[in-house]
Nucleic acid binder design. Structure first.
Lengths: 190, 190
DNA sequence: CAAAATCTACCGACCGGACGTTAGGGAGAT
DNA sequence: ATCTCCCTAACGTCCGGTCGGTAGATTTTG
């Protein structure tokens, strides 16, 4: 990826995060890059292509991150803890991209939309399998797998909405809080 | 509110939910109402005014709903359970409006934005006070009040993202799952 | 090795269309 | 006579995207 192409990408992430995809114009992006808007089209085929490439890259990295973090153990509870922490960390470290990935899906063409949704389904399935396995082994209480997986994922994902990088708590502290909260909820002592 | 004004509102909710605020044009709304787009302006001053009135009405109803549900008890745990169930029910029963209220804030002017954010802060404070009080009385484990409140609220709020009214589980069943999950998390046995 | 051809990165000007909004008017109810 | 509610018609603006072109680097070729 050329230097300017990377610049366009990062300026777009910044603007899509701050103003939203539809409220950001190609001129805005070009302006932020210090070039003319026609030059954008030398690097990206369309505005939608730009959005898609951001979303796809982010989803791929997210998936890789999860796979790496699961490789260390084969104990269900430890794996769930690792998965939660990986999920939280990624969403807070790359807050802007993940926020976009969760709020701007409607900007995609239907084919691109399908691709991203499928990637997300595969990602969710990892968590669902862990909940299922944990339930069968008696590590977690029995419960509705889908609802619980949505609960866990959206919980962490939403962090990207309110997180302030220079706030009171560090990413690892937040990850630890979520980790504890979720594992308690899955064990369902109440 | 006149009949047509109510129709415009409900058509807008439908379209804002399905396509998003910026992707929905005044023509789309007029079309859905069976009138000309200029006629919209007899009932609402602008597109933004329409969005704001939807958001404000929804937030007011949400707050009322919470207040009513808390009046029944003065036990902290029971109140938290009631609050969670109220929050979940409202977000699933009025899924489209709450979804918009959580995703289209950027469409507002800065004054209107401020008003809605303030209403939301007051709403959040109710939950934060319950967590605080529960912590002091030893009903819940000690923990970061803000993070936990965000966790609880976004958890339920996110339900409006994936909920299917004709799905496998009823609203009350989902509310019960969330209730158990959250209370366990707050008691932090893990 | 130099000239010719090609490729890369960008620009200024422009296009068709869609958008939110306004002006002015008309039919019916009060 | 006035007010409500909706109409037709138009306005100015901005947007995504295209076009033809240029300066410079790189590669190909006689």
């Amino acid at each position: 990826m050329s230097h300017m192409k990377a610049t366009i990408r990062s300026v777009s992430v910044e603007l899509f995060f701050k103003k939203g995809y539809f409220a950001t114009s190609i001129s805005d992006i070009a302006n932020g890059c210090g070039i003319q808007k026609a030059s954008i089209y030398h690097h990206y085929a369309s505005k939608e292509d730009l959005l898609f490439s951001i979303l796809k890259g982010t989803m791929d990295d997210l998936t890789d991150c999860l796979k790496t973090s699961l490789a260390g153990s084969d104990d269900v509870e430890q794996q769930m803890r690792a998965a939660v922490r990986s999920h939280v960390r990624f969403h807070l470290e790359r807050q802007k991209e993940t926020f976009i990935a969760n709020s701007e899906l409607r900007g995609l063409t239907s084919e691109h939309h399908k691709i991203i949704v499928q990637k997300r389904s595969e990602y969710e399935r990892v968590f669902q399998n862990l909940i299922q396995e944990g339930g069968e082994k008696g590590v977690f209480a029995e419960g509705d797998v889908k609802i619980l997986s949505y609960a866990i994922l959206t919980l962490c994902t939403a962090g990207a909405t309110w997180f302030k990088p220079d706030g009171r708590l560090s990413i690892d502290e937040i990850a630890a809080i979520y980790d504890g909260f979720i594992i308690s909820g899955l064990k369902q002592s109440a």
